[in-house]
Design a protein around this nucleic acid. Structure first.
Lengths: 246, 246
DNA sequence: GCAAAAGTGTTGTCCTTACACCCATGC
DNA sequence: GCATGGGTGTAAGGACAACACTTTTGC
């Protein structure tokens, strides 16, 4: 019994050694994460940017990024960076893509994995504003550092597609929202106009909007009903959809 | 004039130095790419696997992976790894996701970026068969090394979604193919049965299938027409699609 | 009472689905 | 001539797009 355990642990040690040697033979690369934080305010889609750390990009804007620690999961790194840069916690983040062109950073080879998020500007007051952290309107952006403009374009496309297939919009809204607010989100992100009646029908038919029996207050027009989104029902019923389309 | 150029180049040197110092302060991480190569043969979806390099996973299967070189773009690394492992060139590869759990590799921290591809088994005879490189049927897979089972599952989901929105299927088929072959691809990947008449109508309505005026030969039944896919027409017309759906 | 946005229904079109019979070939 | 899969049309239902008038509130 002891004999057996011993041979196993010797084999294990040899295996571990082999695996470690292999990994040590790999060149190591500096790794970062960048967060593309989309927000929605009034009628426009915004993105959270800082002024670049580097003198070289002094007047240019940059995504929220930092290096990945040596023993950190990528997802964790993204959440940490967001917390450090903005003070935000408990934010839904999704990995979009990794960028690894050798020349993308002027300081040398850096690979970055990009995460995106959508959130309600009002729910996440910026508790840290170092580096001129601020919301910027998509489509009115200044010059950006590194390849961050290219990255942002990829993320905007990702967002447009994603919001049509997943109920992300509700992250951008207060818990209770009017249909007009919801439609504003879609119009801002998709950059188009939608027919109000068809839009309402669409969401009514899905059956995920719950009437709160409350109304908007303090609006200068007829107040709209307020709804909540029924995430539970959505989770249970969601798609098995097969439909070839392109 | 000279004065001005000089000051610029001094500033540039300072900037470069700052950027380099910054990057040098980042911990570096071993990076790999893994290729999930889907193929289609007769009626079944397959994936290309090797036996793991590591004694620890001696009898387990592994995706085609290797480390990223220190000055190599991720996309290039994926193509190189595929060439080295299989001898295949000019293969369409797409980045799917990066995986970075600290414990995913027994030799220590390794981040991997995963690429997927679809190709025609017949068009790509395996010119290298080291490490028991071979096609394996999806759904009849042995145990896999590392977190490669998890990665493969992500890629299968990616593929199912992707093939419904993009004309990937044609990469898996000969240039000239019958509608039955096309339908087999969809049925294999989506793991379902489709109505033959509706399937044909769907693709006829798209208008991207070109009749070659040729027929199948050497089949034991009425021969079908052979078509080609008109990639050019597709590129020009493709989607501006807006349609919320979830 | 006026400005501003909420709320509501119908119609036509198109897409999707379900479904059954004859045809061309190899053996 | 029979087994195998190729090729075709139609009808019903559901989703989507287009479109106008009345209602409620703040001022």
């Amino acid at each position: 019994m002891l004999e057996h355990d011993k041979s196993v642990s010797i084999a294990t040690a040899a295996h571990t050694h082999e695996a470690i040697s292999l990994v040590e033979s790999y060149p190591a690369v500096p790794l970062t994460v960048d967060c593309v934080i989309f927000g929605f305010d009034k009628h426009v889609l915004k993105v959270l940017l800082i002024k670049s750390d580097l003198a070289q990009f002094a007047e240019k804007y940059s995504l929220l990024g930092d290096n990945v620690k040596s023993n950190e999961d990528l997802d964790d790194a993204a959440h940490r960076v967001l917390l450090e840069r903005t003070g935000m916690k408990d934010v839904y983040l999704e990995q979009v893509h990794s960028f690894g062109k050798p020349q993308r950073h002027p300081g040398g080879r850096v690979v970055t994995t990009v995460y995106a998020s959508l959130l309600n500007v009002k729910h996440h007051e910026l508790s840290i504003t170092d580096h001129e952290l601020n919301w910027h309107q998509i489509g009115q952006l200044g010059e950006m550092a590194f390849d961050h403009k290219e990255i942002l374009d990829v993320c905007v496309n990702w967002l447009q597609k994603r919001i049509q297939e997943h109920p992300l919009a509700f992250n951008l809204l207060p818990k209770k929202f009017s249909l007009r607010q919801l439609q504003n989100v879609y119009e801002a992100i998709l950059n188009c106009q939608l027919d109000r009646r068809n839009f309402r029908k669409k969401f009514a038919a899905m059956g995920y909007l719950m009437d709160t029996n409350e109304m908007e207050v303090n609006v200068t027009h007829r107040p709209g009903k307020l709804y909540t989104f029924d995430f539970e029902a959505y989770q249970q019923r969601k798609k098995n959809g097969i439909g070839i389309d392109f």
